[in-house]
């Protein structure tokens, strides 16, 4: 079966710095894949390339077999037009480290905006669906609250609802608990486990090793812009092979 997400030989430079040096990764429908690695290994950049928030220099990203971000004219790659990029972005949902809720909209408004403006839903329908999603992330009572009236954990759960309500094929989670106070981390991780259990396809960048072990079908260890090791969580965490992964796991245990 064709993988939902195919990343082929992806390269990305920031000036003189090679951030991604040829990354290959497949994610199948319904799979949960976690990307781990030290900061600066390129894992966040990888996610941002998949969401087309970053341009990339070489390689291809395909979702459901459709190459995203670029088209090839003869020998030349050309970035797609804004409208096409937006349509392709809507195939993936993204949850950010710093929540990035729209501060001028209520929790409900945050979830409904994309439904109305991107999906073209009628307002009443969109609001009903948004309310439904807020209920699923445990925030039914907070629909009318503005982001500034919510805790970090609640904001992040609204952000998850906002991403999922768009019914994306793939959800990207970028260190979604790193900006949270420790006591708020669990509620957000519980929410992610819930949606993973419902069969969502997730690509997760995380520092929470226990969470990655619990929730993932597959774990990818990135090191200096490359995938250094990949496999099922039992293999990665119990039988790490490369010395760098062993060292990384030891340093992140405490």
């Amino acid at each position: 079966m064709q993988p939902l997400l195919q990343i082929k030989a992806l390269t990305k430079r920031f000036g003189a710095l090679d951030v991604l040096k040829g990354v290959d990764l497949d994610v199948h429908q319904g799979q949960v894949v976690s990307v781990i690695g030290s900061s600066g290994s390129g894992k966040t950049t990888l996610l941002r390339c998949v969401n087309l928030l970053e341009e990339f220099d070489g390689g291809d990203i395909l979702i459901d077999g459709e190459a995203i971000g670029y088209r090839t004219e003869g020998q030349r790659r050309r970035r797609l037009k804004d409208r096409d990029l937006s349509r392709q972005r809507a195939m993936t949902g993204m949850v950010f480290q710093s929540f990035n809720l729209f501060p001028h909209l209520t929790a409900l408004g945050n979830v409904a905006l994309g439904l109305i403006k991107v999906k073209g839903m009628a307002k009443a329908e969109a609001r009903a669906l948004a309310a439904d999603w807020l209920g699923r992330v445990g925030l039914a009572g907070h629909a009318a609250h503005y982001p500034s009236q919510l805790s970090g954990g609640q904001q992040q759960r609204v952000a998850i609802a906002r991403a999922l309500a768009m019914n994306p094929k793939l959800v990207l989670l970028d260190e979604i608990t790193s900006a949270l106070d420790p006591e708020l981390v669990q509620e957000v991780l519980q929410t992610v486990k819930l949606i993973a259990g419902e069969g969502a396809t997730l690509l997760i960048v995380t520092h929470e090793m226990r969470f990655a072990r619990d929730v993932s079908h597959s774990v990818v260890f990135m090191e200096k812009g490359r995938i250094a090791e990949a496999g099922p969580p039992s293999e990665i965490f119990n039988n790490p092979r490369s010395p760098r992964l062993i060292e990384f796991l030891r340093s992140s245990r405490d």
């Binding site: 969401n51 928030l53 804004d82 409208r83 937006s86 349509r87 972005r89 809507a90 993936t92 949902g93 993204m94 950010f96 710093s98 990035n100 809720l101 729209f102 501060p103 905006l113 994309g114 403006k117 991107v118 952000a159 906002r162 991403a163 768009m166």
Partner: peptide, 18 residues
């Protein structure tokens, strides 16, 4: 306006104009 909030708008598929 925080850059992340703009990115969040783009991430749910809004065009630049939207």
């Amino acid at each position: 306006v925080p850059k992340g909030v703009i990115e969040a708008g783009r991430a749910i598929g809004l065009t630049r104009l939207q």
